[in-house]
Computed example of a mutant assay.
Amino acid sequence: MDRDLLFLVGLVFLPLAFVALVSAWADRRRPWAALILVAVGLGVAAWASFTNPAGPYDWRLIPELAVETVGRYWQR
């Protein structure tokens, strides 16, 4: 799997973690799922960013990276 896709998948986990946190808070239970999603999302995104041969990703270029990556996989 390519690092760009892993980076984007890691970033997708972060809003899901927020939703899980709000859900746990509303139900008055411990946010274990949110903590796991944050750990996995940040871990995958950090690993993909720091092992990228071109260097760490620039946050301003994430939309362009997302479009290029989706286009690359859509074309296959």
Rank of each mutant, 00 (worst) to 15 (best):
L37C: 03
L5A: 14
T51D: 06
F13G: 07
P53R: 05
I62W: 06
V19M: 05
R60C: 02
R76P: 04
T69D: 10
F50C: 02
D4S: 15
W59Y: 06
D4I: 13
L16K: 03
Y57V: 14
D58H: 06
Y73F: 14
L65N: 11
L37R: 06
L5V: 13
W47E: 01
A24C: 03
R28E: 11
V70I: 15
A66P: 05
E64M: 06
L5H: 10
R72A: 15
G41N: 07
T69Q: 12
R30H: 08
T51R: 06
W25N: 10
V9P: 03
R72V: 14
W25V: 11
Y73H: 13
L5S: 13
F18S: 05
W47C: 00
V19P: 00
T51A: 05
V40W: 00
Q75V: 12
S49A: 09
V12W: 06
V22I: 12
E68K: 15
R29G: 03
T69R: 14
I62E: 06
R72F: 15
W74V: 13
S23D: 08
E68M: 08
D2H: 12
A20V: 03
P31H: 03
V9Q: 12
G41Q: 09
R30C: 01
R76V: 13
R3M: 09
L6G: 15
F13D: 01
W25R: 11
P53Y: 03
V22D: 08
